[in-house]
Write a protein that binds this DNA or RNA. Structure first.
Length: 278
DNA sequence: AGTGTATCCTGCAGGC
DNA sequence: TGCCTGCAGGATACAC
């Protein structure tokens, strides 16, 4: 899916238009995208005003006026569209949940593959819910030293650690692969072998990639759109992800695709040959 | 502890 | 044109 930059872009778009508006009713068209019974979910959200829309990891988080949080994990193909009127948004090909607002507005959750999940988290559960996720990589408190402490105890490939939401929140396959390219680290490098210098480089690369992607409105490979229906522009500047066979922009060596952990990774065989920065 | 595999689901691209 | 296979921004559960 949508990784951190896409969730951030969506959250900002929603936060510009939703705060103060009240959900009149919730229509669950596809019960499998809702966590728990659809009736309970709808009951927790209906009648509530939206206080603020934010993000935690890859999740778009709508804080409601009773401090319930509606957490939207977009899975691979989740989209959120705003508009007005009854029924689902006309742009929605696979509407899953429709929120009608008191003022005639409407928010549609659309999800082709339905890997997404909408959860109403009660105020009392929020800390526990948020606590399952690792630190926010763009937070001031996420330092190079913290990155190193996360990597140091693990023998897993560094890419696997970057994707582990319990270790660091919000990093998905695209940005993990991109950050490793910038840092010149082999995706399969054992995390514990990454020393202070390399960890600092990866820390800087990861934050740079995430920030630039947010600036570009995220990456659209296929389905992703922001809350206004726009595609992300970061796909144009990817250096490694999806570029198998194309020349590395640093050294012209063809980018290589490898698969581990059930997912593709991409690297420059020359820049990221495993003998990189330690 | 870490890794591979399967599962959820649909659409699309590529090969024949 | 049509059929089949493989693949995909994610998360989780399981066996080894």
């Amino acid at each position: 899916m949508p990784e951190l930059p896409e969730a951030e872009t969506i959250a900002r778009g929603l936060n510009a238009v939703l705060p103060g508006r009240v959900v009149r009713d919730v229509e669950v068209l596809r019960a499998d995208v809702v966590n728990g019974p659809a009736r309970a979910f709808a009951g927790a959200v209906a009648g509530r005003a939206v206080r603020e829309v934010g993000r935690r990891g890859k999740n778009v988080v709508l804080a409601l006026d009773d401090s319930t949080r509606m957490v939207v994990n977009l899975g691979m193909t989740g989209r959120i569209m705003t508009g007005s009127g009854d029924g689902a948004d006309p742009r929605s090909t696979h509407p899953a949940v429709v929120f009608r607002l008191e003022d005639g507005g409407r928010v549609t959750y659309d999800d082709v593959r339905r890997f997404g999940l909408l959860t109403a988290v009660p105020a009392t559960e929020w800390r526990r819910w948020s606590g399952r996720l690792g630190p926010e990589p763009l937070a001031r408190s996420f330092t190079a030293a913290r990155m190193r402490r996360i990597l140091a105890p693990s023998r897993s490939p560094v890419r696997s650690l970057l994707l582990d939401q319990r270790k660091i929140a919000g990093v998905g396959n695209i940005y993990a692969v991109e950050a490793l390219w910038f840092a010149r680290i082999h995706p399969l490098a054992p995390a514990r072998d990454i020393g202070a210098t390399a960890a600092a480089g990866l820390h800087r690369a990861l934050r740079r990639v995430l920030r630039n992607a947010i600036r570009a409105g995220g990456t659209t490979l296929r389905n992703y759109r922001d809350a206004d229906g726009n595609e992300g522009r970061f796909g144009r500047v990817l250096r490694a992800y999806g570029r198998e066979g194309e020349p590395c922009t640093r050294c012209r060596t063809p980018i290589e695709r490898i698969v581990f952990g059930g997912r593709p990774a991409f690297r420059c065989p020359r820049c990221q040959d495993g003998s990189g920065p330690r």
